[in-house]
């Protein structure tokens, strides 16, 4: 065995190395879980096929394709899969082990999200790319980035929060239902928001999925949720910022409540 009196070996540990190792392990675990891979890879595409019947012309279909792949990706890949990953790891006492070691709580909570982010970006890229091939316009490309980054942050935070009150992997199907249903119904890609009563429509824009749809629509068409086109980059950035705001608030709320209330031990 080693002697403590030996000259200290150089400290090779760093936050990046540590986080990288956790991400790699989480990626391996994810890829070996057939159910999770199916939900993460196939489901958004099935949803895209199911929902794309709504759009009539090719141009609109192009826009819709990106929206559906990004939105269902956020729900099933980032949100649902991350909740089940965190809860599953807690049930296996993996989170407790990691917390007893050097990884920080943030590293432990975010590591399983990274492979999901990569999957989501690929899917969103395919959706948007396919949409452009179908002839969808692209007014503000940077708003695509806002939609993806804002959506990913908000839904990652919401997953951490949901994991605080989800006890088992099985019960995740129930605990994730409210946010999933609200998002599927009230974000404008299954039911047009204009069909809703005015107060509900206005409220819907503050939900965690609607701004993603708004931003993506804005990126393609240049038309804001209020239905008006925007002239000039300054005004466009301002409009984009307003659409991003609810996502930032959800990110903050999700992480504050999630990290404060997080249970690392299934018995606690």
């Amino acid at each position: 065995m080693t002697a403590l009196t030996a000259p200290a070996r150089p400290a090779i540990g760093s936050g990046r190395r540590r986080f990288g190792a956790l991400v790699r392990a989480e990626t391996t675990i994810l890829l070996r879980n057939k159910t999770a891979v199916f939900i993460a890879v196939a489901l958004p595409f099935l949803m895209a096929v199911a929902f794309s019947g709504i759009a009539m012309d090719r141009e609109l279909l192009g826009v819709t394709l990106g929206i559906i792949l990004l939105a269902t990706g956020l729900l099933f890949v980032v949100y649902y899969t991350l909740v089940t990953s965190l809860v599953g790891r807690r049930e296996q006492l993996v989170l407790k082990r990691l917390l007893s070691g050097e990884p920080t709580p943030w590293e432990i909570l975010l590591a399983p999200a990274v492979p999901l982010w990569v999957l989501l970006v690929i899917q969103a890229g395919l959706g948007v790319g396919g949409g452009l091939l179908l002839g969808a316009p692209l007014a503000h490309p940077w708003a695509l980035v806002l939609a993806v980054v804002g959506g990913v942050s908000a839904w990652t935070a919401l997953a951490v929060w949901s994991a605080t009150w989800t006890r088992t992997v099985e019960s995740a199907q129930l605990t994730t239902m409210p946010l999933m249903m609200i998002s599927l119904l009230l974000s404008g890609f299954s039911i047009p928001l204009s069909a809703l009563p005015e107060p509900v429509e206005r409220l819907a824009h503050w939900l965690p999925m609607t701004p993603v749809v708004d931003l993506l629509t804005f990126a393609h068409t240049g038309i804001t949720p209020a239905g008006t086109p925007v002239d000039g980059l300054g005004a466009a950035l301002l409009a984009g910022g307003w659409m991003l705001l609810p996502l930032l608030l959800w990110t903050l709320l999700g992480f504050v409540a999630g990290v404060r209330g997080f249970r690392w031990d299934p018995r606690s």
């Binding site: 200290a8 070996r9 150089p10 400290a11 090779i12 540990g13 190395r17 540590r18 990288g20 190792a21 956790l22 790699r24 392990a25 990691l98 070691g101 050097e102 990884p103």
Partner: peptide, 10 residues
Amino acid sequence: RAWHATLTRP
């Protein structure tokens, strides 16, 4: 290997 990479002086 993963645990090794989380340590300061492994």
